[in-house]
Each structure stands twice: as C-alpha cells, then as structure tokens.
Amino acid sequence: MGTAGIVILSILGIIILFLIIKFNIYVSLRNKIKQSKSGIDVYLNQRFDLIPNLVECVKGYANYESQTFAKITELRSEYDNGKNLKKGEEVNSEFNKLLAISESNPNLKASEQFINLQKSLTKIENQLQAARRVYNGDVTLYNTTISTFPDLILAKLFGFKEEELFEIEEYKKENINIDL
C-alpha cells in the first residue's frame, strides 16, 4: 500500500471515529432525557397515589363533583397505559384543581388529616417541579447540541429528533372558579 493509501485510510479512520464519538454523545444525551423523564413519572405516580386519600378527605366536608374524580381516574389509567407525560400533566392539572377547591373550604383546612395530606402533596409537588426542571435542562442541552452545526447534519443523518420542553401547566394559566 502506497503513502496515498495510508493517508486515505487514516482520514477515513478519523472520520469514522469522529462519527462514533458524536453518535455516542447524542445517545448519552437522549438517555439522560429518558432518565429525567422517568424521574417525573416517579413523582407523578407518588402524587397520583394520594388521589384516593384526597377524595376521602373532601367527601366528608364538601360536595365535590363525583365527575371530577371519575375524570381523574380515567386520565390516570390513560397515563398508565401510554406513560405520556402530557397526559400525566393533565391528570396533575385536574388533581390540582380538586386540591384548590378543597383548600378553599375552611372546615377542611382545619382537618388534621387534610393538613398532613397537604404537606405530603406540597413535598411531592416541589420534587415534581424540580424533576421538570432537570428534564427541561437535559432537553435544552440535547436540543442545542443537535441543532447546531455540524451536529445538525449528523443528528439528522442518525435520526435524532428534537424533544419537547415542558410548558407551564394549563391550570396555572386559568383562573380557577371555586364553587362549593
């Protein structure tokens, strides 16, 4: 093999090595997103597990709509089937509405059972909020990496697509009408 052949082979070797490194970086960044997504799932489930407790609490004090609970249960089973985080956030949003209604009831606010439940919910909500921020941070890093040159071309070549960021929950944008 002549000098030219060695040079061409070396260049090819460097290019392949570069592509392997780049591919591995994209994969590790995508795995980080998956990991942080599963973190959100853990906290969402912890929160949803408290739904029956909240409903039990509310029952004794307020005339809550049974439809609300049915809706939450339905949404939760949809979430459990697909593990779609958007669905999960929808359940959470409904759950928060129910919580907001409960919090406006003075009798309920004085209940020890409700206070303890509220504490647990606040703790999980903080963790959920933090998990969302971790997820958004990982998604931002991944999206920035695959949308800048030359990664833009390579990522497309390897089939890596941009991931969606978490937006502010819908219920926080709305004005909640409390009617007990």
Binding site: S36, G39, N126, A130, A131, V134
Partner: peptide, 9 residues
C-alpha cells in the same frame, strides 16, 4: 451531584 432532583430543589 448524585441526586439531580434534590439539587434542583
């Protein structure tokens, strides 16, 4: 960190 969620908190 060894716990990202807690760090974010």
């Amino acid at each position: 960190t060894d716990d990202k969620v807690k760090l974010m908190q």
